[in-house]
Structure formats: C-alpha cells, structure tokens
Amino acid sequence: MSLLDVRDLNVWIDTRRGRPLHVVRGLGFSLEPGQRFGLVGESGCGKTTALLAMLGLLPPSASVSGQVLLDGRDIFASGEETVQPARWMDIAIVFQGAMNALNPVKTVGWQIAEPMVRHGFARRQAAWRRAEHLLSLVGIPGAAARRYPHEFSGGMRQRAAIAMALACEPRVLLADEPTTALDVMVQAQILELLVRLTGELGLALVLVTHDLPVVAQVCDQAAVMYAGELVEKGPVDALYHDPRHPYTRLLFAATPDLYQRESVRSIPGAPPRLDRDITGCPFRPRCDQALDRCATEAPVLLEIGQARAAACLAAEHDRSQTAAS
C-alpha cells in the first residue's frame, strides 16, 4: 500500500456556454514516503487543476471523480467531511505564487502558527514556538517570526510559505511551481531545501512545474501531462534518456541546456481545444511519429517495464515489432 495513491482522477469545469470542459482525464499515480514526484506540462495541461482537485479545493463549478487514497483510505469517501481533516494535516500545499499571498498585516510567525491553531494541532503558544522552529528548519532565523512579509525578500517569503505548509506535520507536500518567479540562485536554494526536507522528514513531494530541468534535478519519478492526460510516467532518468512518448522527447528537445550544443527545436502547433471532441490521440497534430491509426484510435496509458507507462500507439507498435523479431 502506497502512502498516496491517486486513481482515475477526472475534473470537469462547467462553463456558462456549452458542455463542461474535461480538463483532467483519468490521472493516476502513487507515491511512497520520501519520494519526489514531478508533474510536468505546459500551461493549460491541467496540472494545477489536478493538484487542487486532490485537496478538494476547486470551486463549485468543477466536478471531480476518482479516488485519492491516503494509506489506502479514500479521502473523498464522504466528501468535504473526510477531505477537511486530511487537508493541511496530511496533505499540504505550497500554492503557485504563495510568496506573494502572505497577509501583509500579520506577522510571518502568526501566519505559520494559524493553521496549527485552526486545525487543533497545537495551542497558541506551542504553535508560535513551532513556527519559530519551522522557520529555522527552512533556513530563516526563528526570531524573524515577529517580522512582517514586506521585511522578507522573495526567497525568504517562499521559504516561509513552505514552513507554513509544514506546520501540521503533513506527510505529503504538494508544490505548485515553487521556484518559477525566483532567480536562479534563490531557486537553487529552495530546491535544495525541498530535497533536504523530503530526506529529513520522510515527506513525499509532488512538484508541479513546466520546467523540465528542475524536475530532472529534484525528482526521482515524474509524469508528463498533455491536454489533461498523463502521456508518460516513469523514473526521470528513463524519461530523459529513453523517452517513449514523442511529446516527452520533443519537450526535452525544446528545452535549452547549458552544456549541450545541439539546437533546441520548438514543437509546431498548439495543444487541442478542450471544448471540442478529441478523436484519436490528442498529440497527433503535433507529433513527428504519428501513424494512420493515431487519427482514430485513442491511446491508453500502458505499463512498459518497471514503473513505466506511456500512452502512445507508435510506442506500442515499436514494442510489438521488437517482441516479434
């Protein structure tokens, strides 16, 4: 039994006109303590929506199906009643842009202590002491708890947002683009912090980002999303050195690397519109390996070897040929 097991997660968003948009389509992955999992994709692929859905944080215009199992128990079993106790206590989140969402008129320390008091995790004084401890854990002197957000630099505010998520000793930390607005040196500091925390606290990390090199350097496992679906998942090493889905390969090829000299190429075209029917493979119009079948047959995510899966008919085709020969 895994620590966290997300099964067949689907999200539909109601629009005022027309039918609901199916923005997350059958997402599934599992996570062990201390593991670092990357969820990668471009804007609009559904990665943030999936993250919010896992915590029951989507607005009423969204409908969600699927299971989020924590130690084998479905936290959605009785709706908000079972999600609420898990939220922040077991699964916490560092929102995108969290460092700019701190309350300017409250001290940083109190903002870290508040969820502990709210969730009955600790009483006021103990919560404050723990807030100071958490700040030092993320590399800020505990005495800074009495300061206000404007007295912190961007990097310090992002550390504080992480400390806040750690307040109630969660076992799973979801982080949405935690370093996107930060400079490279501060990014390196925050990434090092996340890696250290998973090691020291046995925390499982889900890192959502569009930045492949960040995932390559931080995560052990990763999944690539396209148009709401997982197109490939596996160990990051395999995704880079032996990608099975053309999108994974092309996305790496579109990312410049400091030392590699081969030219970077963009992927022609754009992701499909989700308000129209998608027939066949959603990536087919942009794919450089599409077969005739891809226009009509939708690929499913199939296991390939150890802890790997890809949703690509061309990859399946290759494999059956190799098996036959």
Binding site: S153, G155, V184, M185, V186, Q187, A188, Q189, L191, E192, D211, L212, P213, V214, A216, Q217, V218, V236, D237, Y240, H241, F252, T255, D257, L258, Y259, Q260
Partner: peptide, 24 residues
C-alpha cells in the same frame, strides 16, 4: 561560476551540485 552551477541541467545524471551563494 556560481550562476552557471546553479542552472538546473536537463540530464538527471548530471548531478554537479550548485555552488550556492549565501544571501541575496
């Protein structure tokens, strides 16, 4: 040198550590 070392590399096997500067 520090900036170059802090840039995340695409290849997961390239694990040269970032030479992290203190402060900002």
């Amino acid at each position: 040198r520090a900036l170059v070392s802090a840039v995340p590399k695409r290849d997961p096997r390239d694990t040269t550590r970032a030479e992290i500067l203190s402060g900002e």
